[in-house]
Computed example of a mutant assay.
Amino acid sequence: MTIITTDSLNTKHFSKGSRFGKDATVEDFFRDFWSGIEGEVGRKEKLEEELLTLEEEEKKKKLEQELLTLKKRELHRKYVSLATMVPFALLMAVELEKTCSDQVLLGLISSALGHTILPFTTLYLICTLYLIYNNRKIAQKERELKNIEDGEIIEKERRDIPYTVDDYFNYADAALVTLVIVASIVSQALEQGIIGDVAFSISSLFYFVASATFCYREYKKSKKHEVEKEQGFDDRSEKKTSNMSAAKLMFAGSSILLIRRIMLIALSSSLHPAVGPTLGLVGMIFLIAGSVLIARSYSRKLENIEVSGKGVSIGAGVGNVGDGGSNTEGPAIA
């Protein structure tokens, strides 16, 4: 029986089939064996990293597609909201023409359009509620996409989406539209026009403040753009996102409609019948023009995969349209 000792292992050569050299020792064997294991572990970790990278790329593409779909839906909402303004512009035009003519047909058309105001106000409320929901989804998807790009892993239940100024305006918008709808129904049921007047006045004032805020923010953005342009920064992206022209139109429209509302309350007895419809028509034209510009600007952004921004409901809102002395009101949406 042969006894193998450490000294004999240190001097004894390995078998002919071994890949070690002639003078290899046990330490060399284990060193090479361990390096082989480390190489296998490293290759395994590399494969896992490559697989994780592929999964992140797939998830990123999926999130980008979902985000684009949500923003396309927001564009469709803008068009639906824009469509709700058309009947009220027509109503103002008919009311204005009716004051200058005694045609019975115009009276019938005006009465028919007046009955469409409450349904279109309800449609506007639905659009506003969907805007709130869609904005939260967009913010969530943008946060997930940013985390993937930054390599951060955050548990979904711990991810808090901060509220923006636009979100608060949209919540207030939904609350005021609901108030106007309820006030309209109560006013008709109790034949108390003062209830509707109060709701419409609050709504008109709110949308004036909202459009003024929107205009101020766009003004600050344009000033920032001018400074960056003087410093030599690329201004192409800023030009695509500028809504200054639309903001001015929205502010002008909401201002005219607020003035109209004040005149209807303060000068109702001495006001000429044509003043109300005229101011209402001019204000609606400004609002429609501003809304079209905003929708077109948002549509152009969707052509860029890096589109950013959420929907915002800014404009004349509800309770600004009607004839010179009636309480026939409706939404004007941006």
Rank of each mutant, 00 (worst) to 15 (best):
M1R: 04
I3H: 15
T5G: 04
D7V: 11
K12M: 12
H13C: 09
H13S: 13
S15P: 05
G21Q: 09
K22A: 08
V26C: 12
D32E: 14
E50K: 14
L51D: 08
E56M: 08
E58K: 11
E58C: 09
K60D: 09
L67T: 01
L70K: 04
V80M: 10
S81K: 03
S81F: 05
L82S: 02
A93K: 01
A93V: 06
V94R: 00
E95M: 10
L96Y: 07
K98Y: 08
D102Y: 12
Q103P: 01
S110Y: 09
S111R: 13
L113H: 01
I117G: 01
I117A: 04
L118W: 06
T121V: 10
L123M: 15
L123H: 05
N135K: 05
K141D: 00
E155Q: 11
R159W: 05
P162A: 07
L176N: 01
T178N: 13
A183V: 02
I194A: 14
S203G: 11
S203K: 00
L205H: 01
A212K: 05
F214I: 10
H225W: 05
E226Q: 15
E226T: 13
K229D: 07
D234P: 00
R236Q: 08
S245W: 10
K248L: 15
K248C: 11
S254K: 00
L258A: 01
L258F: 06
I262F: 07
M263A: 15
M263L: 15
L264V: 02
L267K: 13
L267H: 14
S268H: 12
S269D: 15
P277W: 00
P277A: 06
G280P: 02
L281A: 09
M284V: 05
M284S: 12
M284C: 11
F286M: 04
V292N: 03
I294V: 14
A295K: 05
K301Y: 08
I305G: 04
I305K: 10
G309C: 07
G311S: 09
G319M: 03
D323T: 04
P331K: 03
